Amino acid sequence: MTYKLILNGKTLKGETTTEAVDAATAEKVFKQYANDNGVDGEWTYDDATKTFTVTE
């Protein structure tokens, strides 16, 4: 399945996607991606759209 991440960081905004077997796996990938890019904030997940959002 394809999962999407929306980044609403103070210095980085954008979107990315990943292929993962489940939401938990996608979340690990996205949290590492956000961490690597210096984005740390509040996370939400919408199962209907398979979209994670992180907002600083």
Rank of each mutant, 00 (worst) to 15 (best):
G14Q: 11
T17E: 09
K13H: 11
Q32W: 05
L7N: 02
K13W: 13
T2M: 13
G38W: 05
Y33D: 01
Q32I: 07
K13Q: 11
N37L: 15
D47W: 09
N35H: 14
A20K: 03
T53Y: 11
G41E: 01
W43C: 02
T53W: 09
T18L: 11
G38Y: 06
N8G: 04
A34C: 11
Y3S: 01
I6R: 06
T49L: 08
E27W: 14
Y3V: 02
T49C: 05
D46A: 04
D47C: 07
A24K: 11
D46M: 04
F30P: 00
A20Q: 07
D36E: 12
N8Y: 12
T11Y: 14
K31A: 05
E42C: 11
D36S: 11
T16W: 15
K28N: 08
A23S: 12
K31H: 09
V54T: 03
E19K: 13
Y3G: 01
D40R: 12
T49D: 04
Y3K: 01
E42L: 10
G41L: 03
F30T: 00
D22R: 03
Y45S: 01
T44P: 00
K10G: 07
T11E: 11
Y3H: 04
A20F: 04
E27D: 05
F52R: 00
T2N: 07
Q32F: 05
I6Y: 06
L12T: 10
T51V: 06
N8E: 08
A24W: 10
T49E: 07
V21H: 13
L12E: 06
K13L: 07
G41P: 01
N35W: 14
V39N: 03
T51K: 03
V21Q: 12
A48D: 11
E27Y: 15
V39S: 03
E56F: 09
A23L: 10
E42Y: 14
T55D: 07
K4W: 10
L7Q: 02
K50F: 10
T16S: 08
L5S: 00
E19T: 14
F30A: 01
K28E: 11
A20H: 03
E19F: 15
T53M: 09
I6M: 05
L5Q: 00
G9W: 05
G38P: 01
M1S: 15
T55K: 06
T16L: 15
W43K: 00
N8H: 10
V39T: 04
Y45W: 04
K50W: 06
Y33R: 03
A20I: 02
F52Q: 00
L12V: 14
Q32L: 09
W43F: 04
A26V: 02
G41R: 01
T55R: 06
T55G: 05
T49S: 09
T17Y: 14
V29I: 13
Q32C: 06
T17R: 09
N37R: 14
T17L: 09
L12I: 15
F52D: 00
K13T: 10
N8M: 11
Y45I: 02
T44E: 10
